[in-house]
Amino acid sequence: MSISVLKPGLLTTVQDLGRPGYQRYGVVVGGAVDAFAARVANLLAGNGDNAALLEIALQGPALRFKADTLVAWSGGDFDAKLGTEPLPKDRPVRVPAGAVVSFGLAPHGARAWLAVAGGIDVPLVLGSRSTYRRAGFGGHQGRPLRAGDVLTLGAGGDWANTILASLLAAGRAATTWSVRPPTLGAQPKEGFVRAMRGPEWELFTPEAQRRFFAEEFRVTKDADRMGVRLEGPALALTAPRELISSAVNAGVVQVPPGGAPIVLLCSRQTVGGYPRLAAVAAVDFGRLAQLRPGDRVRFEEISLAGAHELYIARERNLNRVRTGLTRLVG
């Protein structure tokens, strides 16, 4: 089983849930920018959470499948096709042998995750199959996909095979039901992400604190897997401060001198020394992952306990869905 890359897309990489455990050696966690969407896509393809899948950014790839394969994709609003037909999102789809799956431009949003039954079979490096582009290892040869690449797939599980057979028998490409990741958790208001105060909140002026949660920010062109630089009201410290570098986290809103904040994502550096004004709740990383240059975003304050409540509720919902899907095939 394999996939041939006909067109690579703008930045298509093999990812999983990342490479935790090596940050003390300077190795970034990385993995899918929206780990939750990646987990749902994997679930719908009958895979474990951490199976390797494709992360697609802004303009997607065209891929030819060698054999009948169950796939599922989740994330931003891409114009995805199976041959010439739409490739529906958030549900298992049977891709027949020889068919081409293609992702065009994303009219909204920035990233999607395409899971294939059995996962993408690339070597584990430091416990993960995720591509670490800056260091040139992991994923498919340590780099984004190129035209002509051939990706080997693992063997799909029993669940995937049963769904595949039932789709074939019913003469359908996709299931009639779907699992949309946003429905599994209470979403922030349109245009917002929820954030907690950060460790250096108190070092900022009252005006900066007020404006951070009151005003709109615009996503600049500096937006990648490491982080998203915003522009908006300048966020000033009460006094200049030299901080001693320490570990940072995905979702952290750090403010370099100059006052334009950066929201860190999964491939952030392992340590940083800028004041951390706030931190976006983990349940809203899906929103962050879809920000593209020119988008507007606002921050809504949430308590740490409130963020945990949302996190736990979403995990419990996902577990319920997992149980339901298991029962589906008896």
């Binding site: 935790p20 320490s246 392992t270 945990h308 995990e315």
Partner: peptide, 21 residues
């Protein structure tokens, strides 16, 4: 606890809220 990351003056401890619960 998922990971511990030492720096100059700190150890940062990464955790999974569900597993701590």
């Amino acid at each position: 606890v998922v990971e511990l990351v030492p720096a100059y003056t700190t150890v940062t401890l990464f955790y999974d809220p569900l597993r701590v619960l």
